[in-house]
Each structure stands twice: as C-alpha cells, then as structure tokens.
C-alpha cells in the first residue's frame, strides 16, 4: 500500500478548475494523477469532470488530455492505444504510454457500456476509471443505472406514490470481471492509499483494467460539501460500498467491515434520501438495508471471507 511520503508533490490536475467544492470527481482526478508511472494520456467522457476542468482556453490538466464525446471514452482510448502501437511498428513512436479513460456513471453504466465492453473484450492496454456519483449530475441530477434504490433524482423524484428510484444499481465490476480482464476493483476516496495503489496496479497490468470509485456529489446527493470524504467513508463502513478487487478472476476484500453501521448512517446525511425517513416510506430503508446485506454476503463469499 502506498504511503503519503511516496506520493509526488507535483500536481498534474491543478487547482482553478470549476468543479464544485467537495466534488468527488476532482478529488479522484487529483489522486489518480499521484499514481502515474510515466507518459500518460487521459481520455475523458463528457461529464462534470470534463466540462469543469477544461473550459477553453483554460485547462486543469498537465497531462495530455482528450475528450471526444459522452459514450465513447473506451473506444477513443482503443484508438489511441492502437495508434501508438502501429506507429511504434514503423519506427515513428518510441514511448510506452499509459492511457487512462475517465467516465462518470452515466457515461459508464448506461450510454458507454457497449464501448467499454468492446474495449475490454479486445484487450486494449488501458485503465478505465468510473467515478460514480450515482446519477447524471452534470445535466441536473437525473437517475442512471448506477442510482441506488430509493434515491430522489429529478427523473426519479420523491413522489407521494413512488418514493425515488424503484430499481437497484447494476453490478458494474461484475460485468467487467465477466470479460475475463486481469484487474477490476472498487474504491472509495476516503481510503486514498487503497485507491492510489489500485490505480498504479491498474496501470501496471498489461491489458485492460477497471476501477469503480465512489464519488460524492454535494449538489446531487445533497450533502454538506465539507463532508464528502466522511460520506465516502460511511459508504464503506455501512457496507454499502464494498471495497474489493478482482485479480485474474480472484476476488479479494480490501477493506474489512466487521462492525457495519446501519445504512441510515449513510442515508441520513444526504438530502436525496430525506423522504425515506417519513413513516410511510420506512420500508424503502429496509429494502436498502436488505440489498446491502445481500450484496455484502455475495461479495464476501466471492472473496472467500464468509
């Protein structure tokens, strides 16, 4: 595990960007840049991280950075990787380049999943990082395939009949691992050394790697912007966000949570779940707790911990 003193002081994702105070995406971008091992190209899907870090003529990126569209970061990364390979074959390129693609949960779970699946199947050497703030925050907090059950968004509002999103979250890492890739992992920015270590590991893998990192969003999750990291920690400590990795098909639990806090601890500091604390919607909290318990059991069994 990486130590604080091991980290470079140089900031390749610089201040001055326009992300909100307390935004997880900015924290994730900065931490990611601390894990680089050499020449790197970042590909960014359309989303908060992209729009807030590069308003022309400014940029927050001191690494080579490319944005093409919303659903295609993995395909663009495929093209870049292939191009360097081909140019090396004819002696017109001599650098080993690491390629990192960032997508939010919309660009990953929903509109981008086909391009990701294709790139993983083809085996391109790149690291895909999904910063998951659990809704389309950039367009104004609409529900995505990553939005949890019961959460209120602008397209799954806390109605009098339907209290937030009826559906549950996709198992994104399960989908990626099913492609037989060498490395897939979840992470939380509250456990910075775990995350940064995983980024480096993902870069070192020959072939595709995926990291799915929880990304607090004060605006969309409606929490105090000073409490982003606290929220990211609660996600883990309530077992809502199991932190594990899948290396060559083998699951390993990275953060053990022997005494989990009740899910309410995670829910109550977020406005998106406020409606669930009305007596008539209490059952949704129970459903969420049940989901967390079952998911934890499933993951820990896969990890050989249960």
């Amino acid at each position: 595990m990486v130590r604080l003193k091991d980290l470079p002081t140089e900031e390749l994702f610089t201040s001055g960007h326009r992300l909100c105070a307390g935004c997880g995406a900015g924290i994730v971008a900065r931490m990611t840049m601390k894990a680089l091992r050499g020449p790197t190209v970042v590909v960014n899907a359309t989303g908060c991280m992209e729009v807030a870090s590069t308003i022309y003529p400014y940029t927050a990126w001191k690494v080579a950075w490319v944005h093409v569209a919303f659903e295609n970061a993995a395909a663009v990364a495929s093209g870049i990787e292939s191009a360097y390979k081909a140019m090396a074959k004819r002696g017109a390129w001599d650098k080993k380049v690491d390629i990192i693609a960032f997508g939010g949960d919309g660009g990953t779970f929903d509109i981008g999943i086909q391009a990701i699946s294709g790139a993983l199947e083809r085996g391109h050497d790149f690291l895909y990082i999904c910063y998951d703030n659990e809704a389309y925050m950039n367009t104004g907090i609409q529900r995505s395939g990553a939005t949890p059950h019961g959460a209120a968004t602008t397209t799954s509002p806390a109605g009098t009949k339907i209290p937030g999103k009826p559906e549950f979250k996709k198992d994104f890492i399960g989908i990626c691992a099913a492609h037989g890739i060498e490395y897939a992992a979840t992470a939380s920015p509250a456990y910075w050394n775990d995350y940064i270590t995983k980024v480096r590991k993902g870069l070192e893998v020959e072939g595709p790697a995926v990291i799915h990192v929880f990304s607090p969003c004060p605006l969309g999750m409606r929490h105090d912007s000073a409490k982003s990291i606290e929220l990211a920690r609660l996600a883990v400590q309530t077992r809502y966000w199991p932190v594990y990795e899948v290396e060559k098909g083998k699951y390993k639990l990275n953060i053990k949570v022997p005494k989990p806090k009740p899910i309410e601890e995670f829910l109550k500091i977020q406005g998106r779940f406020r409606h669930l604390f009305q007596p008539q919607f209490k059952h949704v909290i129970d459903e969420l707790q049940q989901y967390v318990d079952e998911n934890w059991k499933r993951i820990t069994e896969l990890c050989g911990e249960a």
Partner: peptide, 13 residues
C-alpha cells in the same frame, strides 16, 4: 497527442 508535450483536445468551448 504526445505525453511529452501535453495538450488538451476537445475542451468545452
């Protein structure tokens, strides 16, 4: 796009 001479391509404009 060359990591040794980083540029930002596709910025919000």
């Amino acid at each position: 796009v060359d990591p040794d001479k980083p540029i930002t391509v596709g910025a919000l404009c």
